[in-house]
Structures are given as structure tokens and as C-alpha cells.
């Protein structure tokens, strides 16, 4: 039984990420700053982006040009993206100044940083599929950078169909997986202790 891949995975999961860590009902007392709020706000904005994006996907990229409801959903999508980046950048800076990679948390930092870069790519393709003047302009201007790298050979920013599929399928999948892994890493490793925190005080306190 113990040689089964499934049982090995379950054992490892239960050891590293028991339900008490996944859904905790307590946390270190030092988690007492507004900066901690921006992680969950980023996730919330991402949820809004996905929800509004699904509605837009059902109606197609040109729907919002002709429908008031479509315009409203497009606005929800647009502002959720703006909020997402504001929250994420504050979250990122906060984690930098906490040196949040300490204590074997490099992978938590790295998945967050790569998720940030993936978000930029996802948002960029979103701007390309607006099917308005802005998307005409951005695709013409942006092609030179990608072509200069040779990337234009397989990532053609002037191809609406390709950009639309990447925007609604591939890139959100990458971002979604990175986000889930990032959050699981946070739950597994816990919130990084304060810089200058000393073991004697940490271990001597009580709930």
C-alpha cells in the first residue's frame, strides 16, 4: 500500500499541508498591519476579473461595443484589472520590505514574482483584444519589440484570434496555477516572522 503513488501523495500532502494549515483559525500575533490585507485583496480582484471575464467570453469580444450590459461588464473587467495591479504591486512591495523570502520561502516569493510577470502578459493580451482603436495602436507598436526578440514568430500580437485564445485560455491557466501554488506555499510555510524577531521572545509567548 505504502508504495502506491496515490498514498505517497496523500501522506506527503497531509504532512506538509494539513487542513489546519490550509484553513487556519489562528495566526501569529505579529500579523498586525494593513499591508497584510493586500494579498487577499489581490486574490479578490482576480476573482472579479475571472467572473467578469467569463461573462464577456460568453458574448464575444465585440459585444461591449453595442450593448449597455456589455459595456458595464467590460467596465467591471477593466476596473477589476486596475484594482488587481494596484493591490498586487502594494503586496509585492510589502513583501519585499519584509524580506518575505526568509526561512525557506524563496519558492513562495518566486511563484509570486512569476505570477506578477504572468499577470502583465495576461493584461497585455487583454488590451490587444479590445477590438477598438487602442488595440489597433498597441498591436502595431508592440509587434516591433516581440519581433526583435524573434518571439513574433509564435506570438503574433496583430493576430486577434491568437491573442484572444491566449488571453482567455492559456495565460489565465498559467496565472491561476501560479496563484494557487503561491497561496498553498504561503499556507505551508506560514507568514514570515518579523526581521529582528528573536527566538527567546517567539518561543516564550503564549496565546
Amino acid at each position: 500500500m505504502s508504495e502506491m503513488w496515490t498514498s505517497k501523495l496523500r501522506t506527503k500532502w497531509q504532512k506538509n499541508l494539513p487542513i489546519e494549515k490550509l484553513l487556519p483559525d489562528d495566526q501569529p500575533a505579529y500579523v498586525a498591519s494593513w499591508i497584510y490585507v493586500f494579498g487577499v485583496l489581490t486574490l479578490s480582484a482576480l476573482a472579479m476579473i475571472i467572473a467578469s471575464g467569463i461573462v464577456l467570453a460568453f458574448q464575444g469580444p465585440a459585444w461591449y461595443h453595442t450593448s449597455d450590459t456589455g459595456k458595464f461588464m467590460n467596465s467591471m473587467h477593466f476596473w477589476s484589472v486596475q484594482l488587481f495591479f494596484v493591490f498586487m504591486v502594494i503586496h509585492l512591495w510589502g513583501k519585499f520590505w519584509m524580506a518575505a523570502w526568509r526561512g525557506n520561502r524563496f519558492r513562495t516569493w518566486a511563484t509570486g514574482a512569476v505570477a506578477f510577470i504572468s499577470s502583465i502578459a495576461t493584461a497585455f493580451t487583454g488590451y490587444l483584444v479590445q477590438t477598438n482603436f487602442d488595440s489597433q495602436w498597441i498591436s502595431f507598436e508592440a509587434k516591433d519589440g516581440f519581433n526583435s526578440m524573434g518571439v513574433g514568430a509564435f506570438f503574433n500580437v496583430t493576430n486577434l484570434g491568437q491573442m484572444l485564445l491566449l488571453h482567455v485560455a492559456f495565460l489565465p491557466l498559467i496565472l491561476g496555477v501560479l496563484t494557487i501554488v503561491h497561496v498553498l506555499m504561503v499556507r505551508k510555510r506560514g507568514v514570515v516572522p518579523p526581521i529582528d524577531a528573536v527566538p527567546t521572545i517567539a518561543s516564550g509567548g503564549s496565546r
Binding site: 483559525d25 485583496l41 479578490s44 526561512g103 516572522p193
Partner: peptide, 28 residues
């Protein structure tokens, strides 16, 4: 490094992660 990596054994406080997520989603 070991201290930073180890599970926190100091003072803790109550934390409702589901409630926090719900409120954050409502605000956004």
C-alpha cells in the same frame, strides 16, 4: 534561518480566513 523557517511557536491570535476573504471580495 532555522528560526524563520520553523513554525511560529510564539503568541498567536484568532484569525477567520474565510471571513477575511469574504469581506475582501465584497470590498473589491
Amino acid at each position: 534561518h532555522e528560526f524563520d523557517a520553523a513554525p511560529w511557536r510564539g503568541k498567536t491570535k484568532r484569525y477567520d480566513i474565510v471571513k477575511e476573504g469574504t469581506i475582501a471580495l465584497a470590498i473589491v
